[in-house]
């Protein structure tokens, strides 16, 4: 396919770059741990009783990590004129968008996979379920889509560190709600019905809708 090859090439470039330096993954891992430690003091609960708020904490940490990682993927392009190279490259803008989003998705999934067992120990999550894997995948696709789109805008401004979260968080509210609720249901028992009848479809619709819309209008982000 015409779109698939450049998409994979751009994503693979980002992954290879990260494999060499590892700075995004390592800083995001440390940051994720710090978020949990700080929230532990902020919530001031008795030891071991973080479990009721664990799904919320998990997703707060994951979404913060997402913003951090996405800021990095575009900020790295600024060095040595990488962004210009990407834009001059004879590929369509939607391939650039999908490639960067795929790269961010891979980073975030790796970071999340490493952090999940750590969080499970620290927060006392009862069990890890395969459904949780699906929830994390779907929610992270949404994060990567919206995050990459807005990072493309934010990176071109002087105030990119503040602009990305300001744009990102209000728009991903549905993902955060769906992910937290579905995670709570998956981990703490209770009826599994709403996971499949509500939250997973909500995530799928969100992802599909914004993947299409964002790759379609991404060309307008890099003009003028």
């Amino acid at each position: 396919m015409k779109l698939l090859r450049p998409t994979l090439a751009i994503a693979w470039k980002d992954v290879r770059l990260e494999l060499r330096s590892r700075d995004t993954v390592i800083s995001a891992l440390v940051f994720g741990l710090i978020v949990v430690v700080v929230f532990n003091f902020g919530l001031n609960r008795a030891p071991g009783s973080l479990a009721p708020v664990a799904p919320g904490l998990l997703w707060v940490a994951y979404s913060f990590i997402g913003v951090l990682a996405m800021n990095r993927t575009f900020a790295r392009e600024l060095e040595h004129g990488g962004l210009d190279g990407l834009l001059i490259a004879p590929v369509s803008r939607d391939a650039v968008f999908l490639g960067k989003a795929l790269g961010s998705l891979v980073f975030m999934l790796v970071i999340q996979a490493i952090l999940l067992p750590v969080f499970a120990v620290m927060l006392g999550l009862p069990a890890l379920s395969p459904v949780l894997g699906l929830i994390i995948l779907l929610a992270t696709v949404g994060f990567a889509t919206i995050g990459t789109f807005f990072a493309g805008i934010a990176v071109q401004t002087r105030s990119r560190e503040i602009l990305l979260p300001v744009l990102f968080f209000p728009v991903v509210v549905p993902i955060i709600i769906a992910a937290v609720e579905a995670t709570a249901l998956a981990l703490q028992g209770g009826p599994a019905g709403p996971i499949w009848s509500r939250w997973i479809p909500l995530l799928v619709v969100f992802d599909a809708l914004f993947l299409v819309v964002c790759s379609w209008i991404f060309a307008f982000v890099f003009e003028g």
């Binding site: 805008i153 209000p170 728009v171 964002c214 209008i217 003028g224």
Partner: peptide, 10 residues
């Protein structure tokens, strides 16, 4: 252009 796309996404 940016505000137009943000308006659409919003």
């Amino acid at each position: 252009s940016w505000s137009a796309v943000v308006g659409i996404i919003g």
